[in-house]
Design a protein around this nucleic acid. Structure first.
Lengths: 183, 183
DNA sequence: TAGAATAATGAACAAGCAGTTCGGTACAGA
DNA sequence: TCTGTACCGAACTGCTTGTTCATTATTCTA
């Protein structure tokens, strides 16, 4: 990819994240994004079809990074699926969130976009499916699988949200415990 | 209240609900609402400050109805807090939802507004607090109260969403059981 | 390093929407 | 019947989205 393209794309993403930390997705205008990113209007639209696509692509990029941190070998973390202790997968995620590598926290806070949470949950569900044995003990055979997976994934999302809204005072270890106790 | 006011208000609410069943809150315009409701533009704005306030007031009206169905003595249901069997409170809610008295289902579906779900959850939390003893057996003393209440309320919301998305094939009794098994 | 290809610029533009204003009309309630 | 109030509708401001295009700058490559 042309270096100019990469730089522009990054500038737009960064501007967008900065703005998302301050206000709701719905009330961010393209005008604000391009002012913050310092790019031309036409440039923005040559990169992203609409504002919604921008969010979509940002989500894909972020979640790709957080759910697969060995990509490009840049991360000091091992791939979450490769972790030795099975239990550490979710702990690892909480740790990632605490570090707030990508300002993901602002995006997950309650006032932000439904679509973003939806992406988060979708990625989580894939993870949960691979980790189902962990929750075997708690599962009741009467519960349909899809219900169960949905429940675990959303319990995680809600745990993160509760954590953020309460100032993230708890350690990732404590929150992981809460999560397991709640499921 | 003047009969004209009542009629206009109702027409706007109905138009809004009709439109919400078809498309996302964000892409409904005031123009569409007033065309569907067959009222003038200025009339709309004399009733509701903005589109957001319309949603807010609709939520208040609906949840007031569903969470307090004895209001105005119109309902055949007893007040949910007065039900004889403690267990029936949530069953009662699921039954209400199945009847879809107020087209509330469309509003709770995943593509709809965050604000709406937020209101739903807020009302639920109040209910959950009053019903906490029901969940005493499942609660672990390590979990903070606010975390626990939040978890129960959102488990309910997610149960409803799962139910809707899967075609509501299960009976309210079955779903109530799923809910209790999940919490 | 010259030249072709591609990306960015910025200003102008059309279209659409939110929310306001106001003079005129219709209706409710007493 | 009369008075106050609600509704109407059209016009208007201001803002946003998304497009266009001629011009400029940068990158890639031969």
């Amino acid at each position: 990819m042309d270096r100019r393209q990469r730089k522009t794309r990054e500038a737009i993403f960064n501007a967008f994240i900065t703005l998302l930390a301050k206000k709701d997705f719905g009330q961010i205008t393209v005008g604000e994004i391009i002012r913050q990113a310092d790019v031309g209007r036409a440039t923005f639209y040559s990169h992203f079809e609409t504002k919604d696509f921008l969010l979509k692509e940002l989500c894909e990029e972020l979640f790709c990074h957080i759910f697969d941190s060995t990509k490009n070998g840049q991360s000091q973390h091992k791939h979450i699926f490769d972790c030795d202790e099975k239990n550490s997968v979710f702990l690892h995620l909480f740790q990632h969130l605490q570090k707030n590598d990508n300002n993901i926290l602002e995006l997950l806070s309650s006032q932000n976009n439904e679509l973003f949470l939806w992406y988060f949950k979708m990625n989580l569900q894939k993870l949960v499916v691979s980790q189902l044995p962990l929750f075997e003990a708690r599962k009741n055979e009467k519960l349909p699988d899809s219900f169960w997976v949905n429940h675990i994934a959303y319990t995680f999302v809600e745990t993160v949200r509760w954590w953020i809204e309460n100032g993230m005072k708890e350690s990732p270890e404590t929150i992981t415990e809460y999560f397991y106790l709640a499921v």
